[in-house]
């Protein structure tokens, strides 16, 4: 469903991704690990279509369409979801209104009527429970004054409401204590199914004990330099990334 081929991308004319290839099929979970600054978040932003992230080469195919041709909102409506490493605070716009606008936009795109407010609010409340956020968080401004962990859980809440075809989780585990980590893992695992793909970007092997990946990739210097099964994560954990330098 998602097929990235030799992707090159620059930020402010600085090449960051330098020929990255990755293919995700329905139902698969891919983990991406790699040192700081290797381009993991850049990959997420490029896929989500963020302005300023310029694709300079290669291709991204998403269910047969050229993803790079789509506006960011179209990508989201087509079923691509990026959980941000640093979710944005938006005072004045309530979380609930935000979710409603997002869900309605997606439904409209699919030719569905907007959800009526009552069933929408019910679904939102249920999802809140699943990610262990109090319902009062729905009334607050989007991420406004949320702690790091609450922001991450709010990303998960959005993912649940939007039911994407592919979800890219950018370090959704960083800054979480073990309980919060388990909540996140449980939420993701509950959404795993035959059709949905995941790309889980993480710094730590620990998350992968709970979200067991089908593949693990190492991203370094803007490329996937090594791919393997879940055991690769354990190897990275014990050996660090030093061997990457040696390999070059």
């Amino acid at each position: 469903m998602l097929s990235i081929h030799n992707l090159e991308a620059s930020v402010e004319d600085k090449p960051i991704l330098k020929g990255l290839s990755l293919s995700v099929k329905p139902g698969e979970v891919h983990a991406i690990m790699g040192p700081n600054g290797s381009g993991k978040s850049t990959l997420g932003h490029v896929l989500a279509g963020r302005e300023g992230y310029e694709v300079t080469g290669g291709s991204v195919d998403f269910f047969g369409t050229d993803l790079t041709e789509l506006e960011p909102e179209e990508r989201a409506r087509e079923g691509l979801f990026l959980a941000f490493q640093y979710p944005v605070e938006i005072p004045g716009v309530s979380n609930l209104e935000f979710l409603k606008a997002a869900v309605d936009a997606k439904r409209e795109h699919a030719g569905l009527e907007p959800l009526d407010s009552v069933s929408f609010i019910r679904t939102a409340r249920e999802s809140c429970q699943k990610v262990d956020l109090e319902q009062s968080f729905l009334k607050r401004g989007v991420n406004e004054g949320f702690s790091g962990g609450e922001k991450k859980r709010n990303e998960l809440l959005q993912m649940m409401m939007l039911e994407p075809k592919i979800a890219i989780l950018d370090e959704t585990d960083s800054g979480l204590d073990i309980d919060a980590l388990q909540v996140v893992a449980k939420g993701v695992n509950a959404m795993r199914n035959e059709e949905r793909g995941f790309v889980v970007v993480t710094h730590y092997q620990r998350l992968l004990n709970y979200i067991v990946p089908d593949y693990v990739h190492v991203l370094a210097g803007g490329r996937i330099v090594k791919s393997g099964g879940k055991e690769l994560a354990l190897q990275l954990e014990s050996e660090g990334y030093g061997w990457l330098e040696a390999d070059k």
């Binding site: 989500a48 279509g49 963020r50 302005e51 506006e71 960011p72 909102e73 990508r75 989201a76 409506r77 990026l82 941000f84 979710p87 944005v88 938006i90 005072p91 004045g92 716009v93 209104e97 935000f98 606008a101 997002a102 936009a105 997606k106 795109h109 401004g141 989007v142 959005q158 939007l162």
Partner: peptide, 24 residues
């Protein structure tokens, strides 16, 4: 960027943010 990444059009996002500014 954040709103658009959730499927909300640029025009709607601009209205939401403007409203957000005066909503209080």
């Amino acid at each position: 960027v954040y709103l658009r990444s959730r499927g909300i059009s640029a025009a709607e996002a601009a209205v939401m943010l403007s409203f957000g500014f005066i909503n209080e």
